[in-house]
Design a protein around this nucleic acid. Structure first.
Lengths: 218, 218
DNA sequence: TAGATTGTTAATCGATTAACAATC
DNA sequence: TAGATTGTTAATCGATTAACAATC
């Protein structure tokens, strides 16, 4: 079972969203913001915002609200933004290549330092200066380079095998784009991006009204 | 505010996962499965499985469990798999191209019938037989073709504008890959794939222990 | 100081889990 | 029939919201 968060996952998932909104406010030159104002922008309750933040400390001031810049910095600190994180991509198919090309991540200190694939035709090709290497060389690579996060973009059949390998190499976080669940020890962070599940949830929601009409008729 | 589900979103998000596991079991030739067995494979409680399924009907049989194939079909029906869904991609950057190339979606009846971009250099290029068109021609395209889902892959600055446009054209579902939230009327389904948020949550979880050590010392 | 807004406790709401009678 | 397992009600747990004293 993958690593559990101490703070409820619901709160954790809101942190990047707070961070995103604070960044926006900062860009707009907003110097202070109350939980009430922020709650209206974000479509959540002010109470929830205050509860969430107070898990980590009292960052506000009575009668004033929150200093935008200070809160932004605090959130960055809480999330762990600021350090550099080295990532490798395993599987240089569509998704792997797209992620390798995605510039947004570097902004927060996430750096792709290696890409691996099974297909010999790809060996030596470069994506944004990072070479595609033989997947069998992952072990060697990880021994010589600090790797914080492994991004799995291989077909679902191979996902568990790849996960086992990177866990064995001591990597403590996996971003899993394979459309399957993977098993890891409980000190390893796993974040799934199940695009098919996501799309199927749209599908369901488009059909839900009809579905209940049908169910109701029974 | 985007469309809300009648059934709690927690349940809805589990439906594709059930579907996925049932498909696996079916492939393996498993003819029947009890909620207990399934719960062990999926790492959730048997109670939850029974509760979830019973929202939509009693698909099992006392003393026996569930017929794998029947339950799989029921889940497909509930989710709405089986029909064809036409999708367009707006923004032919990395993510847009990757999604256009992704073969997995067609399996469930999701078809990409148009790709749009702002960059004239891309007009006329094809991805898997689908032409990249001028983003200003979306309106015309949607008038002549049934479009069920719009996939937004433009930079965040343009996301809301694009969303407004596709909503105006009558599209009722948006799959949003732009790293920002979008506002839509409450009959439109929005599913966000915020990759940066997802990555930042990994970041947080890798650092949480250290964070609490620091907080504890205060 | 008076007004505003936090931090925090208490109340509510909803989701998950447990229990068990019904029944195949 | 006896055993197994569902469907469903009740109990528990956890997350969200409300309320308000503290305080800037």
């Amino acid at each position: 079972m993958a690593k559990k968060t101490r703070v409820s996952i619901a709160v954790v998932r809101r942190l990047p969203r707070y961070h995103r909104y604070l960044e926006e406010l900062l860009k707009k030159g907003v110097k202070r913001i109350s939980s009430k104002e922020l709650s209206e922008i974000m479509n959540i309750t002010a109470s929830q915002i205050r509860q969430d933040l107070n898990v980590y400390g009292g960052f506000g001031q009575q009668g004033y609200g929150y200093n935008t810049e200070e809160l932004y910095k605090k959130l960055s600190e809480i999330i762990g933004i600021g350090k550099t994180y080295n990532m490798i991509i395993i599987g240089a198919g569509n998704m792997g290549q797209a992620l390798a090309n995605y510039p947004n991540f570097e902004k927060y200190g996430f750096k792709i330092i290696g890409i691996f694939d099974r297909n010999p035709k790809m060996f030596g090709l470069k994506i944004r200066d990072v070479e595609i290497m033989d997947v069998d060389k992952i072990g060697e690579f990880v021994r010589h380079n600090r790797v914080d996060i492994a991004i799995i973009c291989v077909p679902s059949e191979n996902a568990q095998k790849v996960a086992d390998k990177v866990v064995e190499m001591g990597i403590k976080a996996i971003w899993n784009f394979a459309p399957t669940d993977i098993d890891v020890p409980d000190d390893v962070v796993v974040e799934n991006v199940h695009l098919s599940d996501s799309l199927l949830s749209i599908c369901y929601r488009m059909n839900e009204d009809d579905l209940f009409k049908k169910l109701g008729k029974k």
